[in-house]
Design a protein around this nucleic acid. Structure first.
Lengths: 219, 219
DNA sequence: ACGAAACGAGACTGAACCGTATCGAAATCC
DNA sequence: GGATTTCGATACGGTTCAGTCTCGTTTCGT
């Protein structure tokens, strides 16, 4: 992709760089927001494709983004910082939860996860990060903050509400419930490369709620 | 590790190399089984450490194993083949299942998974393979055959038995049951780096069997 | 118009690594 | 003992890439 990139006319670079003086605008030519997007997009694509930071080269990113290497190094000091910026830029907001009904809220949360996992870039980034946590602890930490914890907290709120309302058992830890609900779709995609049909979230939620056993002590 | 490696006296190299003529023993010096083990062990350690094939160098394997590079290339043509051999060599047998009781068999299976995941090498190899499937489809295929499918089939048999005996619902697909049971421990270890306490398998099995909801249509 | 900074392109140095080849020593068969 | 093959070690040419720097050009503020 060597399409020439051009910024829109006045190019209102609100926050193009990563670390800039908070004071007045500097003197020379402002940094291109278009180039920045192209770099982050290319980074996402290539990390997802390579499955690791070791397999990602800055040179390939520059090529793929149609950008000079200096334009990348001007913004981020190394690969790890670049990948962290890319994953933060790609993060999507969680769906609004009506809150009428715990079961439906859980299905909504799982469906948001499902849509995200279907995106090859997000799924590739996830599996790459998993393998690179030991080598790049800062990357793992930020992924947790930006991606994992946000979802975990949202689900925890719903589960807490369900326990309070009596829709969920009060003798099972919230952490365990969360893992039981969220994990199956992840492993389906990550380990088996299966597709995730739209009805899967509801199926998982209903089955986890009801259990797969036939006898039940508390009945 | 530059400890000098020595084979035991007669060094009964039953199957040291990977591709050898099935006929009579060749003429020269036989291949060292000790070197072979050292290479495979070093490969496992380094892949787990690097989290990817791209981050693994044959030179580092030779160094870590205390072996010349030629000794590696004599056996395997490239990195992918080497890593496949390493994962196959590290594979452990599954536990014997008494079969008296579906619940207990499931706990045994999950506990075998748990013990495996606690091993840093096995866990590191798993997360590395997950990220490298796109780049190395053959590696993914073999991992599936050797590791995943064996466990999946064992669990499927137990679940089928449970449905037949009436211990499990007959209106939930076996694939879904398997994912509900196996996935939570995987994501705990892979995504959250939590430890896996010994009581976790029983807790997961019992909770999935009973369900986390309080109301139940079929009661 | 002028200076300042960013732009794409690519030259450059140095490091890491691949895969092959060569060395003398060691292990095995005939 | 001689032929043969593997051993660890290391040298070798070739490739890829990191990170810096230098072009000439472009886009801003003044």
């Amino acid at each position: 992709m060597t399409t020439p990139l051009t910024d829109p006319a006045p190019a209102d670079d609100g926050a193009p760089g990563t670390s800039r003086v908070p004071g007045a605008r500097p003197r020379g030519r402002p940094r291109s927001a278009v180039a920045e997007r192209a770099i982050l997009d290319a980074t996402m694509r290539l990390v997802a494709e390579q499955g690791s930071l070791a397999g990602l080269s800055i040179e390939a990113v520059a090529q793929e983004a149609g950008v000079g290497k200096a334009t990348i190094y001007r913004r981020w000091p190394n690969k790890e910082a670049l990948v962290i910026a890319a994953l933060e830029a790609a993060e999507q907001p969680l769906p609004a939860l009506p809150g009428d009904n715990v079961r439906d809220d859980l299905v909504l949360l799982l469906d948001a996860m499902r849509v995200n996992l279907i995106d090859a870039r997000a799924e590739g980034l996830l599996s790459a990060v998993l393998g690179q946590v030991k080598q790049h602890p800062e990357l793992g930490r930020r992924y947790h903050e930006v991606v994992i914890e946000k979802r975990r907290d949202a689900m925890r709120d719903v589960l807490r509400r369900g326990i309070a309302s009596g829709e969920l058992r009060d003798d099972v830890s919230i952490e365990l419930m969360k893992d039981l609900l969220a994990a199956p779709m992840l492993t389906r995609k990550l380990m088996q490369e299966l597709d995730l049909p739209p009805e899967l979230p509801a199926l998982i939620v209903d089955t986890v709620l009801a259990g797969i056993g036939t006898d039940r002590p508390q009945c």
